[in-house]
Design a binder for these strands. Structure first.
Lengths: 238, 238
DNA sequence: CGCGGCATTGACGCTACTCAAACTAGGTGG
DNA sequence: CCACCTAGTTTGAGTAGCGTCAATGCCGCG
């Protein structure tokens, strides 16, 4: 369902037009021009490895990543997708000395801004605004996990997919990453989506096809568009 | 699958023999004899209501509770079970001003010790030991959510059940709530288990029956015992 | 005794999984 | 420019797991 690629980590320091970095992490992202470091990863690069302790915190400037856990037999559960503006390793921020519970990989070309976790923490203690931004991010992470749990626990395949699309759309919209016609990038392939929702890739395909047939959404070439949001939400509720 | 009962909240201040309160919250629980307040709730009482802001934090002294989310059509997802020593509203602790994302109900007669969230927070800032205990609890909560997500996403009914039993057993053992013969209280009924694992009560029943038939576990009268842990773990892995 | 909550069981149907193959588009080397 | 390769999507046929509906049994309690 995915094969281990040689870690294509290429560390440059190219300048990013950071228009994309909005959202809860925005505040954090802006005050660190000096001490921060922009790094580029290739698709599939491992940013965080479960079990290891890392004292860096990364905020996505451009590209997608995903947080996941892997079972012994190779199965993988994607906990959530990370988009520009997201803090990659909230865990490392909250608990600088504790090993990461989950791994994170780049889904696309990925530009991240990295900080010393401790530095960011200190900062949060001093500035109320910064602290709020940080707490908000943690809160959102918790909420997202819980809601995904509800989705997978209580909804069938159509519901899960509908929810995923609605959620991605809304999160991207918050960060001004949805085009005027409602289209947005969707670099995740059907295998990723399957592993995120706990269904098989084949079944993802069939369900998505039925969505397209009923003109709920459009997907082509790593780009998606919601055609009928009301109907989509109705499917999500079911 | 569950009907709303009139909130049977009865607030007494009876003294608790707090032998049961171990685990991450243990440290927190011990230094508050003065300002803390022990309250008893009846089964099914609502401790935290999603959407409301509460500035109290509760630690379970005795009994079980569960954190859950409810959908419009009545479906319910139980996020996790809370046992003696657990902090009920980690959220309120982390974000005293934010509304709760999830609700919490008592599963059994429940004795909780409650604090002002702010007070506990201040305390954590001053004492390093306290802070560690608190962070550990939050970390565990995150981990638990993630692992449950993996279970529901990747495993079938037998795997989910096996994992749940193993997990409950281990958590209870940490808090010295497992008897010498390996038996422990299991106040959750098959409906609760079903809603926690994302399967139907009927199917929970059948699967549990098969477990008993193959002598993996024993359950009778709200009490459970793991008979063959190795085999259980093997099922869990599958 | 009768009621309510819970566990158990059976029959049946549907959702989603498995296995396997065909097809498509982009990418590479000759 | 074409042949080929790879990653990804699409499709089909058959099946297993789990859900639904509905009935029965069990036990503690008023």
């Amino acid at each position: 369902m995915q094969k281990a690629a040689p870690n294509p980590l290429r560390t440059t320091n190219r300048i990013i037009t950071a228009d994309a970095a909005r959202g809860p992490a925005f505040l954090l992202g802006d005050n660190f021009e000096s001490s921060s470091d922009v790094t580029a990863y290739g698709p599939n690069a491992v940013i965080v490895r479960a079990g290891e302790t890392n004292r860096l915190a990364h905020i996505i400037q451009a590209g997608w990543a995903y947080r996941y856990e892997r079972l012994d037999d190779g199965r993988r559960q994607i906990l959530n997708f990370l988009i520009p503006g997201d803090i990659i390793d909230i865990e490392a921020l909250m608990f600088p000395d504790a090993p990461a519970s989950f791994s994170v990989r780049a889904l696309t070309e990925l530009d991240v801004r990295s900080f010393q976790a401790s530095e960011l923490r200190d900062m949060a203690e001093r500035s109320d605004v910064q602290r709020r931004a940080f707490e908000e991010a943690v809160r959102m992470h918790l909420r997202a996990l819980g809601e995904r749990l509800v989705d997978i626990g209580q909804r069938g395949a159509p519901g899960r997919l509908a929810r995923l699309f609605a959620d991605l759309h809304d999160r991207l919209a918050e960060r001004a990453l949805v085009a005027g016609d409602g289209a947005f990038d969707l670099p995740a392939n059907q295998d990723h989506i399957a592993d995120a929702l706990g269904i098989t890739p084949v079944h993802v395909n069939r369900t998505l096809r039925s969505f397209r047939a009923s003109r709920l959404i459009e997907i082509e070439r790593r780009r998606a568009r919601i055609l009928d949001r009301a109907a989509l939400d109705r499917v999500a509720a079911g």
